[in-house]
């Protein structure tokens, strides 16, 4: 791993120096990783691999990644958290939805480096003490899934919606689940599931 790291890094840096522009106020250099700008020291990360630390589902994870790696790819490729899926990879379909500090985001459109220091919750983190989350249970009972590829994203988006709004009206569903797409057509089940999960959460 270490070997790959230095190789990839050195390549990028060489490439970088070669094409580096001359018009930058502060030149792009690899030398000091700290630049003095506007009277303060600012750390410059990359373009090679950078040590990063994440808090995912309450646990600490570490990896050395280039700044260009998205949170989604870090989760899937580095930490074996493959619940979030890469589908559109352009912030449209919602299959990669995770929570950042409790808010739903498209992990494909967040850089891993900017997710450091924030509470990341993935679908894998929804079970409590080995028990399915009420939303997960409701998805199963209402058959709110077919191939299941969009399901983790939908489950997380539903959690975000119910966390914010425990009694969603049909109109709230439009606004709360408008960022996720399914190809098999499981929306009828999802609508029933979220209604059931809301009832269960109110009861419990």
């Amino acid at each position: 791993m270490e070997k790959q790291h230095s190789r990839a890094g050195s390549l990028s840096r060489r490439d970088f120096l070669k094409v580096s522009g001359i018009t930058l106020t502060v030149p792009l250099v690899i030398g000091p990783r700290v630049l003095k700008v506007a009277g303060a020291e600012v750390k410059v990360f990359g373009p090679g691999r950078v040590p990063m630390t994440f808090t995912i589902n309450g646990k600490t994870y570490r990896a050395e990644l280039e700044p260009r790696v998205t949170l989604l790819d870090a989760l899937r490729n580095e930490f074996e958290l493959t619940g979030a899926k890469r589908v559109c990879d352009r912030g449209t379909c919602g299959a990669c939805t995770v929570l950042l500090d409790g808010k739903p985001v498209y992990a494909c459109s967040v850089l891993a480096i900017e997710a450091q220091g924030r509470a990341i919750t993935t679908v894998e983190g929804l079970m409590q003490n080995g028990k399915l989350h009420p939303i997960q249970q409701a998805f199963i009972e209402n058959d709110a899934l077919q191939c299941g590829f969009c399901t983790p994203g939908f489950v997380v988006a539903c959690k975000a919606l119910l966390d914010r709004n425990p009694n969603p009206t049909p109109e709230d569903l439009v606004a709360g689940l408008g960022g996720n797409l399914c190809r098999c057509g499981t929306y009828v089940g999802i609508r029933a599931a979220i209604a059931q999960a809301a009832r269960m959460q109110r009861g419990g």
């Binding site: 490439d15 700008v37 303060a40 600012v42 410059v44 990360f45 090679g48 950078v50 260009r68 900017e114």
Partner: peptide, 16 residues
């Protein structure tokens, strides 16, 4: 590939 900076003031940002 790119390098990443996260300034804390607008003056730093503009300089970068």
């Amino acid at each position: 590939a790119f390098e990443y900076v996260s300034p804390t003031t607008k003056e730093q940002a503009v300089a970068l």
